[in-house]
Nucleic acid binder design. Structure first.
Lengths: 112, 112
DNA sequence: CCCATGATTCGATAATTATCGAAATATAGG
DNA sequence: CCTATATTTCGATAATTATCGAATCATGGG
């Protein structure tokens, strides 16, 4: 995983409406949620919601599928896990971390 | 954990130099790294580095301590773990996630 | 084909964030 | 006390990002 996509993912999540949308999608699971429904739940105009969903999609954090006239968005859990792995990579320089540090990053074999 | 601090943390990490600095600190462990050394390693002017370190500090992701004339920064692992917990909170709406989804968020009792 | 619905794209504007030199602050040593 | 070092604060400017209405595109039904 390279830092450019990581930054895009972090930037995508670092915004009130996008974070809220992402969390709703995480909780929704594979069913996903339609764009219009997200806009309604968050009280955001459709065009703004679309802009935010595009950012999340471009960052690889969510996926979209069309279902009739609606576009259903879903969280991509694997992407989130790659992101977390990247952030804790080589934690503590390989020294076994104290438990209370909670540093539990698994060794990343696909590290860039 | 409330979303405001989460957004601050994500925004703090969503920047090239700050992400690089944070990762160096994660790998450095408790020894930490001095501000000047970080600036040198990243090829960033001292004043810019200071600005970025302030953002990370304000987000609660790193801590600082003075050691003689230097200020040593260290990663706060617990903060990172809280952040990850928040992002995967209530993953899949409580439905046991598929293994390949890698969704391993523990139940967050201190969830906001 | 026409109309309604759901969503995205466009374009202009407002708001936020990054950059970096110069000046200021803190610490240490002679 | 004076000087050197390490870092932060200030201030001005550049760059990026968010917002939202209007226009456009895609789908489905009558």
């Amino acid at each position: 995983m390279q830092s450019e996509i990581v930054i895009r993912a972090l930037a995508a999540l670092a915004q009130e409406h996008r974070l809220a949308a992402y969390r709703l999608l995480v909780q929704a699971g594979d069913d996903g949620i339609a764009a219009g429904m997200l806009a309604e739940k968050l009280g955001v105009p459709a065009s703004s919601m679309s802009f935010h969903l595009a950012q999340l999609t471009h960052a690889g954090l969510i996926t979209q599928r069309r279902q009739s006239r609606s576009i259903i968005y879903s969280a991509d859990y694997a992407a989130m896990n790659r992101l977390m792995g990247y952030l804790t990579e080589n934690c503590c320089g390989g020294i076994p971390c104290a438990d209370d540090a909670g540093c539990s990053a698994p060794p990343q074999s696909d590290a860039a």
